[in-house]
Design a protein around this nucleic acid. Structure first.
Lengths: 264, 264
DNA sequence: CGGACTCTTGAAATTATTCAATCGGGGTGG
DNA sequence: CCACCCCGATTGAATAATTTCAAGAGTCCG
């Protein structure tokens, strides 16, 4: 219980007045949106109505609330989590710069989960009306946006697999491998490691473990010379060893150079 | 190991010659596709190139293989599962009649997981080219199809939550509640219960448990007067009790009458 | 300095897995 | 027809994995 209470999101929604107009020039392409066509990207930049700053644990969206905009993460990290009536909670996704955070809100209208910032974050906002306009102009663009959300769904599937079939140590290693790769793709992260803004309690919520057990497993990874997590920074000591322990295979991320063509 | 080997899928792909042409009249609308607009449904029926019969454990699609058609499940049940190089395996979705089985293959081009029939199943096939045509004619239709896949993703999230945060008994109860509801929506399933074509080993793969433990937990549910699973049929004795144990809330299924409008 | 948060560690309890044996039903080949 | 075998389910016992409870150390910050 205490593990959970300490990370409750705040409800500092920050008014629309704080939108930074003219921030469009600051929208650079990294990570996932780098896969989009030039033409779609230009239209997205034109459709952006501004950026917004989020502080730690600021909630962006709440389950069940209708939404009219979708957000692209520019800086920082954002978590999406499911919580039931009993307060049991699990993170079901983690977004890095270049990820759309709630593009699925466009076809769905409202979300089934909450969305909140982990540390400081900056997002770009796109009105659903404008996105719908882009979709109706070009079905290729519609498919590109659809595809982004389907990669997100693929990641969901592998998170399910990770939690359901891997033991604590391989599961944590697997998660760290995924984030190491995604962080490097989004411009964060170097050969040495990457900045994962998570506490051990957060990691527990990602992997369906208790915070205490995460502490023990991280000690094992550390003692095993695989990686060290300190102050939110994951230092990779033995990437091959980590990948092997995790049984990590990045196919599910649908990276553009993985030998498959994206569409038929 | 043995638990897994016994349920290995067969590779009886059944040739395209077995397509039952003119089976279009047999495509009735149940379950999820009942949410689609009349107009889209008509176009889908026109785009269908036939139906196909699948036997128990027949594999429909394999991870990594390019696909050119998507399938709508008409009868029976189909499972989607993730498997890693070590043979560890987990079911990540279960489809009932009225569900599109691999519509996400349209924007993705190939799947990250395997798809196979549980018992006997019948599917309707739609060429991606025809579906792309439907999408380009109407962005409303594109959005409807997109929405179906996003509900699928929502279910993924809640499967992750179930496995990551619920104990064995609540998790199994939660899964049974979901399938009870979805089976009734797809025309299977009565007040008394529903036909879930799963063995205990299958249930273990759904909930990330061992088959032995599933057996024990089912005994507890039986002894507790909640439900009885026999020969694949789930008899619901105390639906409220089951829902309570599970902490089940069906919001994540985005049912059309749940008080939210589907789109903005 | 106090308070909140994070991490660590030990010990006990709980939960789930593994191993192993058994039992019954349904099919199959002799 | 019957013996046999495979599969699914069940149960016990031992083991392993993980959680919970509890205490304490270090850090940051007002």
């Amino acid at each position: 219980m205490n593990d959970r209470d300490v990370t409750r999101p705040t409800n500092n929604m920050r008014g629309i007045v704080e939108l930074a107009e003219g921030g469009l020039a600051q929208i650079h392409r990294v990570g996932m949106v780098g896969q989009l066509s030039e033409d779609l990207w230009r239209r997205l930049v034109a459709a952006c109505v501004g950026t917004r700053e989020l502080g730690p644990r600021d909630r962006l969206t709440q389950a069940g609330t209708k939404i009219s905009h979708s957000a692209l993460l520019l800086e920082g990290m954002i978590t999406r989590y499911v919580e039931n009536a009993r307060g049991e909670r699990l993170m079901v996704a983690l977004q890095v710069p270049g990820d759309f955070v709630d593009l699925h809100g466009l076809p769905l209208g409202h979300l089934d989960h909450d969305v909140c910032a982990l540390g400081h974050a900056r997002i770009a906002l796109f009105p659903h009306a404008a996105l719908s306009g882009i979709m109706s102009e070009s079905s290729d663009h519609a498919r590109e946006l659809w595809r982004l959300t389907m990669i997100d769904a693929s990641i969901h599937r592998h998170w399910t697999f990770r939690i359901g079939r891997l033991r604590a140590a391989p599961a944590l290693a697997n998660f760290l491998c995924e984030m190491d790769l995604r962080a490097r793709l989004s411009g964060l992260g170097q050969e040495r490691g990457f900045d994962l803004g998570l506490t051990q309690a957060d990691l527990a919520e990602v992997c369906g473990l208790s915070a205490v057990h995460v502490s023990r497993v991280l000690k094992d990874l550390r003692d095993g010379g695989l990686c060290i997590l300190r102050d939110g920074f994951v230092e990779i000591l033995d990437r091959d060893g980590l990948v092997h322990l995790a049984g990590f295979d990045p196919d599910y991320l649908y990276l553009p150079w993985d030998g498959h063509s994206p569409t038929s």
